[in-house]
Structure formats: C-alpha cells, structure tokens
C-alpha cells in the first residue's frame, strides 16, 4: 500500500467558548492515499468544516497527529503552515475567492508568487494550467468578466498551479447552476483520472456520490467510510 498523502490519527479540535467546550472534531482517524477521490459529507455543524480546515493546514488540531506527505503538521508556526499549504494543498472554494482586481492569469500565478518562483516561469506555468481547464485565451480577463463556471475553473487552475499533493474543494458547486456544477465535477473526474488526489467537502449526497470513496461525518466523528456505491 502506498504511503498515505493525508494521515490523520485520532484528531481532535476543541474550541473553548466561555464555560463550555465545543468538540467540533472529536477523534477522527483518516488516511487518504495518492490518486484517491474522496468526499467528506456531513450536515452543517457536523464538524466537516473544522476537519477540512485541519486537512487544509489552515488550523491545527488540539490533539492527535497529522502527517501530510509524511511531514508532521501539528505544532508548526503560522509561517511553516503557510509553506505547507502553498506546496501541498490546492484550495477550491464555494465562492471561488478570486482576487477581483487581478486577471485570470495573475490569480493563477498567486500561489507561485508565494512559492518564490520567478516571473517568467510563473507565467508559463499559469498559462499551462489555464489551458488545462479550458480557459486559454481568457488570461487577461478579470473575474468579473467571466461566468461562474469559468471563474471556478480559474480557481481550479490556481489550485493546481503549484502542483499540490491534494486538491481540497469546499462545496465547489455550491454557487453554480446544475449544468455548470456537473461540468466542474466532470473536470474533477478528469483531473483524478490524470492522477490528482481530490478531497471534496460537501453537504450534498448527490455531489458526494461522484467521488469513489465517501466519508460521512457527524458530531465530530467519522460514522461511515467506504466506496461511493455503498453510501446511501
């Protein structure tokens, strides 16, 4: 078996809110290996967002150990976490989160800027990624000049730009119409077929079933984990 890309062991994330402790994640163990396409599903308040923040290295667990690509994550400084995010994680957000004043190309270049890659090489890589998501010729467009589906494809290109270990998508179709949403899921299938590891976080079973493996989260715990065909 391959070494897991994402390896969570008994992860807990507790928030202290005044006198009470909120156990948002309360002991999750989860491994994801390279090339997997996994959905994490759960209703709002289930702890899936907290889990996603930990997987995305935006947050660190209160307890437990987390290794990404063999590297220990807990106990790192904000700066080191940022480096890991830059290198290992490609984020795709529900609301795209493109910077409105930057062109499509400049948005895709952003992670490469923070990786310290020189302008010329950065440009080439970003062009390549935009072509990969079918947006060649739209490099100079501002986000406002693109449709919702196109914006999400720019965001996907941006997530792929630094060739991360994992593509982490949070409700990527949530702000899109049915048809466009299907197109985006198609794109994930294509990328997965080309070898990308994808983690898709959603509350929608219809979307979650598109993955090959579905992890159900409830009250901070994993309640089921198995192939998509088994998920009800």
């Amino acid at each position: 078996m391959d070494q897991p890309v994402i390896d969570l062991r008994d992860i807990k994330r507790h928030y202290i809110m005044g006198p009470t402790t909120v156990r948002a994640v309360d002991g999750v163990t989860l491994s994801i290996v390279t090339g997997e396409f996994v959905s994490i599903i759960g209703p709002s308040g289930s702890g899936k967002s907290s889990l996603m923040n930990i997987i995305g290295c935006l947050d660190t667990p209160t307890e437990g150990s987390y290794h990404i690509n063999g590297e220990t994550v807990q106990g790192l400084s904000r700066g080191r976490l940022a480096e890991i995010r830059n290198r290992e994680i490609g984020f795709v957000f529900q609301s795209f989160n493109l910077l409105p004043r930057l062109s499509a190309l400049e948005n895709v270049e952003l992670p490469l800027v923070y990786a310290g890659i020189a302008a010329r090489q950065r440009r080439e890589q970003a062009m390549e990624m935009l072509a990969k998501v079918g947006l060649d010729g739209r490099e100079k467009h501002l986000p406002a000049e693109l449709s919702g589906g196109q914006r999400q494809r720019v965001a996907i290109a941006r997530a792929l730009a630094s060739r991360p270990s994992v593509l982490l998508a949070d409700e990527p179709t949530g702000a899109l119409d049915q048809k466009t949403g299907v197109e985006i899921i198609e794109m994930f299938h294509t990328l997965n077929a080309e070898g990308s590891t994808i983690v898709l976080v959603t509350h929608d079973m219809n979307i979650a079933r598109q993955a090959r493996r579905v992890v159900r989260v409830l009250d901070g715990l994993v309640v089921s984990d198995g192939p998509a065909e088994d998920a009800a």
Partner: peptide
C-alpha cells in the same frame, strides 16, 4: 485570507 490560504506567510 485568500492569499494566506494560497501560501502567503504572515511576513508576506
């Protein structure tokens, strides 16, 4: 927030 998610360090 977006910049940080994409890898901007506090120093950046």
């Amino acid at each position: 927030g977006v910049r940080m998610a994409l890898g901007a360090k506090p120093g950046d």
